[in-house]
Write a protein that binds this DNA or RNA. Structure first.
Lengths: 184, 184
DNA sequence: ATAGTGGCCGAATGAAATTCGGCTACAACA
DNA sequence: TGTTGTAGCCGAATTTCATTCGGCCACTAT
């Protein structure tokens, strides 16, 4: 599968509703984007050129944002995962605060409704690296407080799925620890 | 790039320390896994078969978990993103609670250190779907309370990066809203 | 009715993955 | 210090696959 990413330009505007075949294609590609178009076509009931055309459209309209390698954070010296809530006095979308996006440790930044303004997901080498990041956050004007939730263990972590997709295998350690059953 | 996912079997045990070339390969593949081995080899300074061999090893040892399509959640009827904190009386890793992993809306489940036990990331169709999920969570024994943080807008959302990787482009709406600059 | 269009197929072509044999550099060991 | 083994690399060869092309069918609107 060499769905070239070159032509991925989110023409979000011209988006058609996705039919059942599109969803099936997406489900399959979310699980594994390395299969051939022939194989993919066999799974969804189309010829290789037909799925090729559909995948191109899905990429052109930005439904498929990219084809990427998903890596194990712990394997690349990112052992600490934390969620950081940031409270600000004003409405916290200052450039100084949002500039934390430049740190590769910061994986997500959201504004949320609730008792806090900003919510960050941070994957860092260790506590010291997190501390440095928090220091930078506090240095931004208007920041009143932060609350960090340090992840002890992760039981599930998967990218967005289309509705009715097959499920990501629950991590082994999770199964070992909790003996969760596999079907509802 | 057809790094077949078939042979991805996380032999986490036999992991060698990653050298600079491995990291460069990872950085590149995290950005775009559709490039050819020849292209990849040119970027990191190796021949195509050489990078092929390295990528196979990275997959075999589980550093690369999978090659996947990253899709736009909003394009597939997942308009609501929320983080849910779950407080439990006991130590909340009961099978009943963890069984929410079967819902494709649940993207992440972590246990955290802080004033809560469990932290979920949920991407659902709408508030009603979230409500249904919360109902299921409350039905689990030992659940005392939940606090949901509904995401208003997302400014950054990217998968884990190897250290010193190039950064994911900040979402356009973020730039438009906040005018964040691109370099530290 | 009929021209236009979107989406599909099978075959053909070109590019890329994957394999293979050999080479070099380094390490363990006698 | 020589020697054997091994890990990792390269270039060439093979095979598989992405991608293109022409034609067909079904549906729509004029």
């Amino acid at each position: 599968m060499a769905v070239k990413t070159d032509d991925v330009h989110p023409n979000t505007a011209s988006r058609q509703p996705l039919d059942r075949l599109d969803r099936k294609i997406l489900s399959t590609l979310v699980e594994d984007a390395t299969q051939s178009y022939a194989e993919l076509g066999r799974k969804v009931g189309l010829s290789a050129p037909a799925v090729h055309e559909r995948v191109k459209r899905l990429k052109r309209t930005g439904v498929i944002r990219k084809i990427a390698a998903l890596i194990d954070g712990e394997a690349v010296d990112k052992n600490l995962l934390a969620f950081v809530h940031v409270d600000t006095s004003g409405w916290g979308k200052t450039p100084e605060l949002l500039a934390v996006a430049e740190h590769p440790e910061v994986e997500e930044i959201h504004t949320v409704a609730g008792d806090t303004c900003l919510l960050l997901k941070v994957r860092a080498r260790d506590a010291r690296a997190l501390e440095g990041l928090l220091a930078r956050i506090y240095s931004a004007p208007g920041v009143i407080a932060t609350r960090s939730y340090v992840v002890l263990s992760t039981y599930l972590e998967r990218p967005p799925q289309p509705a009715h997709s097959v499920s990501w295998p629950v991590l082994e350690k999770w199964q070992a620890n909790a003996g969760v059953s596999s079907q509802p």
